[in-house]
Design a binder for these strands. Sequence first.
RNA 1: GGUCCGUUCGUCUAGGGGUUAGGACGCAAGAUUUUCAUUCUUGUAACACGAGUUCGAUUCUCGUACGGACUACCA
Length: 507
Amino acid sequence: MDRKVRVRFAPSPTGALHLGGVRTALFNYLFARHHGGDFLLRIEDTDQTRYVPGAEEYIIESLKWCGLTVDEGVGVGGEYGPYRQSERKPLYKQYALQLVESGNAYYSFDSAEELNAQRAACEAKGETFMYNAISRKNMKNSLTMSAEEVKTLLDSGANYVIRFKMPENEDLYLQDIIRGEVHFNTSLLDDKVLFKADGMPTYHLANIVDDHLMKISHVIRGEEWLPSLPLHVLLYRAFGWEDTMPEFAHLPLILKPVGNGKLSKRDGNKMGFPVFPMEFTDPETGEKWHGYKEDGYLPEAFINMLALLGWNPGTEQEIFTLQELCDQFSLERVNKSGARFNPDKAKWFNHKYLVQKSDAELAVQLNEFLIKDGISYDMAKLEKICRLLKERANFVADIYNSSQYFYHAPQSYDEKGVKKSWKEETPVLMQELIEVLEKVVDFTSPNTEEAVKEWVAGKEIGFGKIMNPFRLAIIGSADGPHMFDIIEILGKEETLTRLHRIISILK
RNA sequence: GGUCCGUUCGUCUAGGGGUUAGGACGCAAGAUUUUCAUUCUUGUAACACGAGUUCGAUUCUCGUACGGACUACCA
């Protein structure tokens, strides 16, 4: 069947969106764009107790920062709204009731205490309680009670839930785009709650009803949903919506860089890398989490890194624009197995993108750091600084840190460097260097380099004898880019001042 | 415990019945250099195990082990 591709990203606003969530959104987005389809954002807030204020805004902002534009949904609208499940509340009950009427679901009146007692009893026997075809016969529900009893209970306003009546002993062979055929037997599945006592649907019901109503063509979600695939397929069948049922694709999980288990928000702060796209402060605990954005990652790099976590184009290309990702993406090339997250590679991606950025753009960002320090510096010079330093940086912050000597003359000189290169004859040589540089009229890098080389050539000493202490004088340590490029930016006056200064201090 | 999914260098991965099993990150060495980096070159390192099918299996099948997810009136 050929129909318009419509996919949705459907997070629950229970906190910040983490790496895995962003990747799910990304793959949905890529799939939609590849097929010229729609990318929807639906907020699944059916659990009022877990709602976190600000989470929804955070999700929207994060997608925006990543450059994943939403075609339809929360924040943009569309003809299938509302797109927040809490606002669709009145809609769901009729669907639950429809299932009761057709014999695919039933009322269940068991209290939490009774359920807990059952669970405890089973646990004592080393078993796990399941509300299923066998145990439902011994519970308080509309299958075991008479019609009158049920009606009385319902009329009296008793608490109830609606459960799906899982068929007994049926083999299901389901299709997953990434995994192929997946087999389940319904006897091992339980009667999931579809409609809760608080009048809200559970995820399962709301998800199927909304995907159907919103004409979703493909459900692309995390692997943690694979176990509920049979329930969902059975739900489509019970509603009679099988012919428009979406295709399913379950994405592999993102695992911790070291140790066992899937990546969790705790790993970030513990191991020194962000797990969230943007900074997030938990409104309850006040706990603060790092974000890729604030840590200096470029959104393009972040997205590129995420895209290659579980997907690859089959070529050796590693750097992709978002457009290239859209063009090349396919679910068939998504891996089956979980991927360990590698923070080092994330940095490498950022480096690649940083180098590609124009010096002017980077200078603007570098300037923001300087403004915070109360430093004002010539923008043209900042551009030159960026050009000089970006090759050796992963972040703009690295450029900022390694360019300090442009804004401040060294206050001290690296001890090892002094020991290694400041010899008895050095002060005299530095004095001569001052004289050589003084004579250079147009203080550009090639001019000063030529002058110094000419001077050194006339003496019988190695270039290093001059350059190492020179470097020490100008930047205070034994690293950094080409010396003559540095002093061009610094200017003649500052260069000579620093040379005079080191002679007076080190003698 | 039960159900389901998975398993190629340390990590992300390509490949696929006969290959020197390819790339990237990381790491190491060399070259370049006034330093530190960058860059370039080279190197390091993998088909979880056991059966079966086959002339031949890392590739297909089955088991085992290991890893992961799920097992709520959470999503």
